[in-house]
Write a protein that binds this DNA or RNA. Structure first.
Lengths: 207, 207
DNA sequence: ATAAAGTTTAACCAAGTGATCAAAAATACA
DNA sequence: TGTATTTTTGATCACTTGGTTAAACTTTAT
């Protein structure tokens, strides 16, 4: 149940987040959202015309959260290794409290490709700035010219996949929640080292 | 539409794969599977009692596919780098024709945790053998003692994430299908190097 | 106080869902 | 050939879904 001090609209949004994050669009039920918010189902349509619109609000919220984190960290003035370290640390910390969000975002484009594409179009995200920054920073700090897309995809893969695949990996390896979290803690150091070591190896290989 | 030469049961299974892989459990419609198989909807229940059972057959099929690939490659007698290279190459090649399977598997445990857990329990998968092998091979070839789970998670992350996040990444970076596939081709070399370079760096660090 | 506007509710609706079943069609068997 | 068995079909069921509506309640403003 959601905090009853909030206004109706906020209660709905919080409840919708809770349900959509865990169930996705198709799996979520308007009735469940209403129950979670402690209000009548018709109010969902009064404040947000349709399930689609409500979902859109929830998705945009999740998206803006991760975008803000990336921007804040990677457009700061720090060595690359520190940025990657900060990102991993912040990301994993945030995720421990909202562990379904990464799945929710990726699942979105599988469930509702057109809607999600429209959201991306509306928000005109520009990853090229980030790529440019990454490329120049790598060149400056490690003296090598590497496709920044691949570096970025590596960082994202090593950060996000272990979170998304957590339920599956835990089941296969029979790991407790605690054990898995401990392994994630280790990765806060391990992953930045992995990326940086690769860059250093390129550095030596080119000289 | 599915190959009409097959027997009814095979037609159903092929059609069910097609639909479940793309839509997941909740998104899939029995009617759509029947249409895809070119048969009457009641036959689905005649051959597979329920949607749940049909889904189970499809999931087990997908799971056994990836398990077989991993076993074949990693229990072979090759240097670690070759194994990783083989895995990436085979995996990415297989995936180009069934690009929805990785997400289907990961999504399964989000949609139907109890059922998927039961499937895993039934098939008693033993990842410890693989971990043991990995650990000893890394010690032999690089003279370092590293938690093989982390290495394995890195290989998986770098291989699987770019596939499951493909629709999202393509949208964000506005990449054509072709361009993205080209980048995946590059990764067949890039990822093994990344992992191996990290191991070499540990090797030097320990000496 | 009272009317107007905004908010909330219970009851209801049409559409779509997985599932069932009796009858028809096809096949196997004597 | 004729009968029993298996396979296939169309019709239908019970149920859930997102969404609507008219009436009731609450707040605001004069």
């Amino acid at each position: 149940m959601v905090n009853s001090q909030l206004g109706t609209e906020e209660k709905i949004l919080e409840a919708a987040k809770k349900v959509f994050h865990r169930k996705g669009y198709e799996g979520a039920r308007m009735q469940e959202i209403a129950d979670e918010a402690g209000i009548n189902k018709a109010l969902l349509h009064y404040y947000f015309r349709s399930k689609e619109k409500l979902f859109e609000a929830v998705f945009e919220d999740a998206l803006s959260g991760i975008m803000r984190l990336v921007s804040t960290i990677f457009f700061s003035d720090k060595p690359l290794k520190d940025k990657i370290q900060s990102f991993l640390c912040s990301y994993l910390n945030i995720i421990t409290e909202n562990s379904y969000i990464p799945w929710f975002i990726i699942n979105g484009i599988y469930e509702r490709p057109e809607q999600i594409k429209a959201i991306f179009d509306k928000q005109d995200i520009n990853p090229l700035q980030l790529m440019k920054l990454l490329k120049s920073q790598v060149r400056k700090e490690y003296g090598v010219d590497i496709n920044p897309f691949q570096i970025w995809l590596n960082v994202l893969s090593l950060s996000v996949f272990p979170v998304i695949a957590k339920p599956l990996v835990r089941e296969i390896f029979r790991l407790s929640e605690e054990t898995y979290n401990q392994l994630m803690e280790e990765r806060k150091e391990l992953v930045p080292e992995l990326i940086i070591n690769a860059l250093k190896a390129y550095e030596k290989g080119e000289n």
